[in-house]
Design a protein around this nucleic acid. Structure first.
Lengths: 163, 163
DNA sequence: ATTAGAAGGTTTACTTTTCCACCTTTTTGC
DNA sequence: GCAAAAAGGTGGAAAAGTAAACCTTCTAAT
């Protein structure tokens, strides 16, 4: 029960639609959790998480890892700085970038949220069968790479349709 | 090349982040394609597609299948009607809902776009290894179901953090 | 039969994401 | 070295998505 369709079990929607649905469900879930704890939105939380766990130290690293639009990153960073969660300073090896660091406030937020979101992540992983768990990352990576290309015969189809 | 990290191959980001990335890449790709053909945005295209291929005939069916917010659906339907792609009439079996149908203009758009997006979909599927193809739908469905729950021990963690 | 509650949909306000033009700093190719 | 190209970042506008208040229609429990 709780499924979208009653009668048609195997209705095969395009993969991109499925992913959009999963994405929006995950997003909603994460938002609901974050909303309990304070003012951080999802993007901000991700930034804090990456910086606080030393996975990323500069603005560009964060941007590449999260896959965030550079404009959005700029805005979220501004918000994080002005609310006192992180500090920024110029990265001397490349003066276009910034070095990011958590403030004590930022660290406190991380310490409060990380355990909760780890539980959630475990919950998600448990929903997957072990075989799936093993390959889902690879599959997603393959899809993402395929999604980068914008020409794969489309151009030809385009010409036919719009001469 | 084109990978996010140079040095760390296996950096395991949370699954939700991966999905967000794939989603946004797929979205961007679809947008880019749609932009070549006309004024339909992604949501509108999905509606036209479902209605035109008889997968969905009423507003509610479309909403459930696409997983679109009801507010957003309402707006997109308005836009589609006012641009002449679809028509709506009250569904007599349940007068809250509407029966949707393509106009000739809508059908023309479908006929032009469907082949192109089918090519794209095939391209995506080809990027997956057969094992991935076999399991990805099931895995995504499991994730989506798991994403519906908002309580899975979180509540307890919440109480600890915010008494 | 009536009524409370659920579900569908609309509207409005608001947040988040995307797009684009522009500026600065690095890198690259002569 | 220097000019062009590339990459990082910023700010503003537009699009997409989310949330909440409200109305109508249906459903279900008395």
């Amino acid at each position: 029960m709780g499924h979208h369709q009653d009668s048609r079990g195997g209705l095969d929607l395009p993969l991109s639609m499925l992913i959009a649905q999963v994405h929006s469900a995950l997003n909603a879930q994460a938002r609901a959790i974050l909303a309990h704890f304070g003012p951080l939105n999802l993007a901000q939380w991700r930034i804090v998480r990456l910086v606080g766990t030393d996975i990323a130290r500069t603005s560009t690293q964060v941007r590449k890892i999260i896959g965030l639009d550079k404009s959005q990153l700029s805005k979220e960073l501004n918000a994080l700085v002005s609310h006192g969660y992180i500090t920024t300073r110029t990265y001397e090896r490349d003066r276009r970038q910034q070095v990011l660091e958590l403030t004590p406030l930022g660290r406190e937020a991380l310490d409060r949220l990380l355990p909760v979101l780890t539980i959630r992540h475990d919950h998600l992983m448990n929903a997957l069968r072990p075989e799936h768990r093993a390959m889902i990352r690879e599959a997603l990576a393959a899809l993402e790479e395929a999604a980068q290309k914008t020409d794969f015969g489309i151009k030809a189809a385009l010409e036919k349709a719009e001469p």
